[in-house]
């Protein structure tokens, strides 16, 4: 049976800009970065999860995507309607302050939820909406 996640995709508008955002602002590290012709396979990950990596996949016309599909995908990503994720932290308020100081745009500050978590919402620099989540002690 399937037993764990290995690689997941985050759609980005510009790989260089996304790499700067995910490494310099969020603190991810580069896992893979290789060119295959004009296709750049670029993944990042968290040091605390060495067996999981995230592909920063650029949306561009290729054998797999038409111009119309690229335009549509770009619109969805920029509007925050395509890529969503939840990142866990031990201290939502502290991480929120740290990332805000680095220039990360939050659209909701840390908020206490009745279902046992504190969560904030930020956007990556492509427009993807991400949740920063802390489990509250039970």
């Amino acid at each position: 049976m399937i037993n764990r996640l290995s690689v997941a995709t985050i759609w980005v508008l510009d790989q260089n800009e996304a790499l700067r955002f995910y490494t310099e602002k969020l603190g991810f590290t580069i896992r893979a970065d290789a060119l295959f012709g004009d296709y750049r396979w670029l993944t990042v990950g968290l040091d605390s999860q060495p067996d999981v990596e995230f592909q920063l996949a650029v949306i561009k016309v290729s054998d797999g995507y038409t111009q119309a599909e690229v335009a549509f995908l770009t619109q969805l990503v920029a509007a925050g309607k395509l890529g969503n994720g939840v990142w866990k932290t031990d201290n939502c308020q502290q991480t929120y302050e740290l990332l805000s100081a680095r220039g990360v745009e939050f659209i909701q500050p840390p908020t206490d939820r009745p279902y046992g978590i504190i969560e904030a919402i930020f956007k990556d620099n492509s427009g993807n909406l991400m949740v920063l989540s802390q489990d509250k002690p039970r």
Binding site: V7, E24, T29, R31, A32, F36, Y39, W41
Partner: peptide
């Protein structure tokens, strides 16, 4: 910003298929 790289780089077959990557 980097960890030591795995060698050789692994690229999932679904990505190769989608983007027509054949000639490594």
């Amino acid at each position: 910003s980097s960890l030591p790289a795995a060698s050789p780089t692994y690229i999932p077959l679904c990505v190769c298929f989608l983007h027509g990557i054949q000639d490594l």
